[in-house]
Design a binder for these strands. Structure first.
Lengths: 218, 218
DNA sequence: GCAAATTAATGATTTATTCAAG
DNA sequence: CTTGAATAAATCATTAATTTGC
């Protein structure tokens, strides 16, 4: 309950503003940008109460159950790993948002899990499988003891016979990853509305003095 | 005269002479006498597209097609860019999920936008600002100062004197990015539930019959 | 004055690298 | 050491300003 949303009011009158302004194409590297002012308003609304809330409405902060309070990272169960590996061997490499969601739902039957865990798992597994391959083909004619269960996909090894699977070499990208490339829609799903002040609140401590704000710096 | 300096005019009650300084692109070399700042107005006036920008905060009242239904990429408006740049200059580099959501809500007043657009914008802007910095410090030994606009981080430029500023070299990571590193929680927000079959549908040719799917297995 | 061809900017993805929990 | 998590770098893909030719 302060000021600081006056800035917002500035841009608020959207209708009349937009007309006619055709957004000049982003041009040269804005080398000669001289934006002297502007810090004022920023300060103004970066400097709200700064302490009104702790933003608990974090969807994933409810780790109170079945997990250690400090339980940070996901600890996959055997079943989860197994299923994921199966999917991987099945060819899945970069599941899209919907697929991830579905996988998550299924895997949650075996233990706590989130969508990002699935996402990261595929990312990491793919990358590490790749680098393992590379190492093997390069120097180490040694078999890395079977760690636990994770039997490496045989299909893959067959493919990458001896050519370093660098990414952008002969084949473009996602030759075999996913049928549709633009499928993955980012899963941002929000719905709340707040003020700018709260947006910038978290970084105020530094933004404040970050710009010395030397007018026309040159 | 609704010209192009909208955004700028916002933050800085600029007169009107600043044309061409912000994002004019020096596309072709054209070393001779190119009056780059002249062409714009012509187009601007000639382009009475009336809806070059998309939607007022409300749904499309009469807009034929705000954007191609075929799903094009986000085309930020002047206002959106301006706000994002302001936030960036304010110190924001890697907004977390909540911040992204809030920013998205605000920016959606000026045009269609999604959370991922905001996310990507910060990613790209940060990266390109950095590489611009690098190029400047490397390529031209002249003009030691006047780094550019938005002096991202003086510390950084100092470091990059002779050593390629690889990310994890001297300084760890995010020395100055965000106060809390583990802050960004992945914004997966799903809500539907389906079967495994549908998950693998896209890759059914192989995954479909791969897993027996036995819950309570353990 | 316009439209196709050019071209730089930049949005969107993927990959590589790194950090840190266990 | 293994690996989940996160960020940065590289790269692909699309857009729109500029050029160019008519």
């Amino acid at each position: 309950m302060k000021v600081h949303h006056f800035t917002r009011g500035f841009w608020e009158h959207e209708p009349s503003l937009s007309l006619g302004c055709k957004r000049l194409r982003p041009l040269a590297p804005k080398i000669s940008d001289n934006t002297p002012s502007l810090s004022f308003d920023l300060k103004t609304f970066i400097r709200p109460e700064t302490d009104d809330k702790k933003d608990p409405p974090s969807p994933q902060s409810q780790v109170v159950e079945t997990h250690v309070p400090g339980g940070t990272r996901w600890n996959p169960t055997q079943e989860q790993i197994g299923i994921l590996e199966m999917l991987y061997r099945g060819g899945m490499r970069t599941p899209n948002a919907q697929q991830i969601e579905q996988i998550t739902v299924q895997l949650s039957k075996y233990g706590k899990i989130e969508g990002k865990n699935v996402f990261y798992w595929f990312q990491n597994h793919k990358a590490r499988e790749r680098q393992k391959q590379k190492r093997n083909s390069l120097g180490l004619p040694h078999s890395p003891r079977t760690p636990t269960t994770t039997l490496v996909s045989p299909t893959f090894s067959t493919i990458t016979t001896l050519d370093t699977p660098k990414r952008g070499e002969g084949m473009k990208r996602n030759q075999e990853d996913s049928p549709l490339k633009k499928s993955r829609s980012w899963p941002f799903e929000y719905l709340e509305e707040q003020n700018w002040s709260s947006i910038c609140k978290q970084e105020e401590h530094k933004t404040l003095e970050l710009f010395p704000l030397h007018p026309e710096g040159r």
